[in-house]
Amino acid sequence: MTATRQVRRYPFSEAPGVDIDPLYGALRRDEPVSRVQLPYGEEAWLATRYDDVRTVLIDPRFSRAAAQGQDQPRTREEITYEGIIGLDPPEHTRLRKLVGKALTARRVNEMRENAVRIANACLDDLVAEGPSADLVEHFAMPFPVTVICELLGVPVEDHVKFRVWTEGLTSTAQPIMAQVEQLFGYIGGLVAQRREQPTEDLLGVLVHARDEHDQLSEQELLSIVGVGLLLTGSETVSTHIPNFLYALLKSPGHYEMLKAEPELIPAAVEELLRLIPLNPAAMFPRYATEDVRFGDVVVRQGEPILVSLPGANRDPEIFTDPEDVDFRRASNPHVAFGHGPHHCLGAQLARMELQVALEAVTTRFPDLRLSGGDDGVEWKKGLLVRGPKVLRVRW
């Protein structure tokens, strides 16, 4: 069956702005599990229907651990360092529980006041550059990096290093392991400090779990902090802040709505997460441990399958008028943060930061607009995430 199906080059053509390629919709309708070839690695299946995507993400017959050592389908030549993302339960579950205790919804909510302080300090710097400035450089980048660095207890003077490493870890051009080694070396120094002088920050808690309770190996500790928390706690947010504001400013009525009804901001964040993909292509294939059928398609044991979260998030079987922006959507079970065992570790933190960011910007800049229209926007290239590298705004 595999040989008779069309194999499409993937990622598909890059859609402008924050849109997605219309081919996702056509495949979801006509060929919901299709064959694709990424720039590197073996051919794979691609699931685009919501129900199929959720099945792949929760069904234990699809394994992330089985992908290790395989020629995984991928967008860059070097195999991505995966850390906790490359594990299956129960190993994955054990590590998630340790971090989950520190990143509960209650704990994240308690961090909100400090996040508001950081957001407004960054916006003060933006104002100082005004009345026109790059919102990415002066707000979208420093805000989440400062939040996650304070959470981990990283010295202020070293925050800029984390910005460099974050971009390096998502680059499709730079050798990723060189970035990982630098990051892990730095975190290892912080770990040594916590052993000499214990702290109450998140890194101190994880070091205590490593040393006192033997719940973490040294490599697991470095992976959780460097990849699991740094990427989910900063890169997701620093990319989506300008994505969301670009979308809102291109549709001024929605920006005005949030100004007039700030209580809609949490729902607006969920709707924008549903509609705007962070990644231009599916990542992290799962390998079938036995034959699994999807309609007329059988994913054979040992074959990789990718899931399209953007495709699933626009499935008309789940979302009424899925292409429309609706901040009053009654039900929004999107999978922007994944689903099941590998649901994003920092999802609660990212939600809180995005809510704080939108509320701070819409409150302080009621007349915000794009500076020079799309000419003031420069999009990231050569990265695993998609968003504005530069977003010039006026107020």
Rank of each mutant, 00 (worst) to 15 (best):
L278A: 05
V147D: 04
H159E: 06
R49D: 02
G346F: 13
P316R: 10
R286P: 05
L245H: 05
A128G: 11
A350D: 01
Q37I: 11
E261S: 09
F365L: 12
D374N: 13
A105Y: 03
F184M: 05
E378G: 06
A312L: 05
W395T: 03
H343N: 02
R329S: 08
M283I: 14
L23T: 11
L216F: 09
F284T: 07
R64I: 07
Y81M: 05
E317C: 03
N120Q: 11
G376V: 07
V335E: 07
P388Q: 11
T232S: 15
V205K: 06
H159W: 15
R194F: 15
E317H: 11
P262H: 12
P316N: 08
S13H: 11
V307G: 01
V335M: 12
F143Y: 15
A67H: 01
G382W: 13
D21R: 05
Q179A: 14
G69M: 05
Q355K: 12
A173P: 00
S132H: 12
P73D: 07
A65M: 07
H343Y: 15
L309P: 00
H159N: 01
Y246W: 15
R8G: 00
L272W: 03
R364I: 13
N120F: 01
R94V: 12
W395L: 12
L309I: 07
I305Q: 01
L169A: 01
L245A: 04
H342Q: 02
G168H: 08
E150I: 03
R314T: 07
N279P: 00
V127L: 13
R394V: 12
A115I: 06
A247D: 06
L384V: 04
G69Q: 01
L258W: 03
Q197S: 13
M141V: 15
L278P: 03
Q68F: 06
P131H: 13
G338T: 04
A65V: 08
F294R: 00
V292I: 14
Y24T: 01
A347G: 00
T239S: 14
Q6C: 00
Q70T: 03
L309Y: 15
I305E: 00
E157H: 12
R28H: 07
A357D: 03
A282C: 04
Q6H: 09
V33P: 00
H254Q: 11
A3T: 10
N114G: 08
I305R: 02
V298G: 01
S308A: 00
R351H: 13
E323W: 13
I241M: 08
P198T: 07
W379Q: 10
A260I: 05
D291F: 14
D214Y: 06
R286W: 13
T320F: 07
T104M: 10
G185Y: 11
R61F: 09
V191Y: 09
L383F: 15
D321S: 11
M111K: 08
L273A: 02
Q68R: 13
W165A: 06
C149I: 09
R300M: 01
P155W: 09
A44Q: 01
P142K: 06
V205Y: 13
R107F: 04
